[in-house]
Design a protein around this nucleic acid. Sequence first.
DNA 1: ACATAATGTAGCATATACACTACATTTTGA
DNA 2: TCAAAATGTAGTGTATATGCTACATTATGT
Lengths: 85, 85
Amino acid sequence: MSGKQVSFYNRVKMLRVERGLSRQELAEKINVHPQTIGYIERQQFNPTIELALNLSKALGVGLDAMFSAEPFELVDESALRRSAK
Amino acid sequence: MSGKQVSFYNRVKMLRVERGLSRQELAEKINVHPQTIGYIERQQFNPTIELALNLSKALGVGLDAMFSAEPFELVDESALRRSAK
DNA sequence: ACATAATGTAGCATATACACTACATTTTGA
DNA sequence: TCAAAATGTAGTGTATATGCTACATTATGT
């Protein structure tokens, strides 16, 4: 293992899966090791801003949509209904 | 010196000065060494997301308003005029 | 002009981000 | 059910984020 559990939240896994990317594929897009993506998703370490900016670009969302000091809300059914076309 | 020049941009100094804080004061708010603030402002290293989230809270702006892969625009006179009440 | 505060520079020390390899476990699809 | 793909776990190694101390330089206010 690398770091210990970290004290903030991220939506990297959700965003990656939503885009149909494997860790391998996401890792290639931003030139990091696939394990690095895993550690971030499991909140086992605290990525740098540079890596976060690369993730942000690769996933097409801003930093604030991806990292937060507070837990992100779960997507509930009403939200899904609202976002349905 | 600690790290080398970093490949992205931040507005920490501008935001700090605008709020009338010294590095010492900002550092105390977020429990880091004042030199750490200096290194970030001079882009001499790549802070972690956790530190960035703390800065974000202390300065009252989102991550995207503080860090960017592209240079921030300079505040020009017309912008100042526009934002004047 | 002078004191004081704020900032920069330059070390050294420690923790950890991230790379990488190898193998175990889980998931997925045929 | 079985093979392949995706993910998790473990351990090692290196670079660097960050702490900290000390001194030099540059504002700032009086």
